[in-house]
């Protein structure tokens, strides 16, 4: 079925290989380091889970991880609700200033992060809003909801409006139609926007740094303050765990799509 294609020229292959090496070698090194400890008796490198033990037992790291998850969870929830509502409004209604709103929702994507961080800080200070986990959550919502707007709008653009008409036609009230038809169909868009929002929140440094108060360090901030006193292998272990969690999340996020595809393939095989 597939047309056989020539292999790419050797220099393209080389450049590609080098690029990928450059991208992934640091990651590989980090993972290897997380499993290596030096035997104090003879100075030999050993495989050990020592750093994992230490990382998980470190109260400060645990607190920072909890804070990151807490902030990530609430900012994702906030961004998903606001983002979905905005996308819905932009797709379904026509109102004065719509073009402006459309453009404004995309501004956080292009605005320099440092400007955003500074302006948020000034704003919180002006409002005499105490800096802490709430201010971080609010700050994260402001930049991550744009991503939800984009993913949900993409989904809405493909949405066949006759499906809603069909639901009405079959006796569903507008609320039932939303719950039974519209929402389940845009849900994948909300989910991928939410995943993106969570990832962005989880590894944001700059904005968090500006809007965090005393005792509300998230993981990136904690790690940064730790490496000021030298890189502990604990950090490698923790990073490897986060990497693993991310990979699992990505696999989970893409699974439902794959299974429906294989069903179609099965049908094609049957004829």
């Amino acid at each position: 079925m597939e047309r056989s294609r020539p292999s790419p020229p050797w220099f393209a292959q080389t450049v590609t290989a080098l690029t990928f090496l450059l991208l992934y070698i640091p990651l590989v090194v980090l993972v290897i380091y997380s499993f290596v400890s030096i035997d104090p008796a003879n100075g030999q490198a050993l495989f050990s889970l020592e750093w994992y033990k230490q990382a998980l037992q470190d109260d400060e790291l645990r607190r920072a991880l909890n804070m990151s998850l807490w902030v990530g969870l609430w900012s994702t929830l906030g961004a998903s609700i606001i983002g979905t509502a905005t996308a819905w409004a932009l797709d379904r209604f026509s109102f004065p200033g719509k073009q402006w709103l459309d453009a404004l929702t995309l501004v956080p994507l292009v605005i320099p992060e440092i400007v955003m961080a500074l302006s948020l800080l000034i704003w919180f200070v002006l409002l005499k809003f105490s800096l802490g986990s709430i201010s971080i959550i609010l700050a994260h919502i402001t930049f991550s909801f744009s991503y939800v707007v984009i993913t949900v709008r993409t989904r809405l653009a493909d949405f066949d409006h006759s499906l809603e008409e069909a639901a009405f036609d079959l006796g569903a009230t507008p609320i039932q139609t939303f719950g039974r038809v519209s929402f389940p169909l845009i849900w994948p868009g909300i989910l991928s926007g939410a995943l993106m929002a969570f990832t962005l929140s989880f590894d944001d440094f700059l904005i968090t740094f500006f809007t965090a108060g005393v005792g509300s360090d998230t993981l990136p901030i904690k790690l940064y303050s730790m490496i000021k006193y030298g890189i502990s292998p604990k950090i490698n272990a923790l990073s490897t765990l986060i990497l693993l969690a991310t990979i699992i999340m990505v696999i989970f996020a893409f699974r439902p799509k794959k299974s429906s595809q294989s069903q179609t393939e099965k049908l094609k095989a049957i004829g």
Binding site: D160, E165, F168
Partner: peptide, 20 residues
């Protein structure tokens, strides 16, 4: 009357079956 209060049902041009 809105569609859900009419005793008419429609077969749509592209069927509009619920894909989920």
């Amino acid at each position: 009357l809105p569609p859900h209060q009419r005793q008419c049902n429609t077969v749509f041009q592209r069927y509009a079956l619920f894909p989920h």
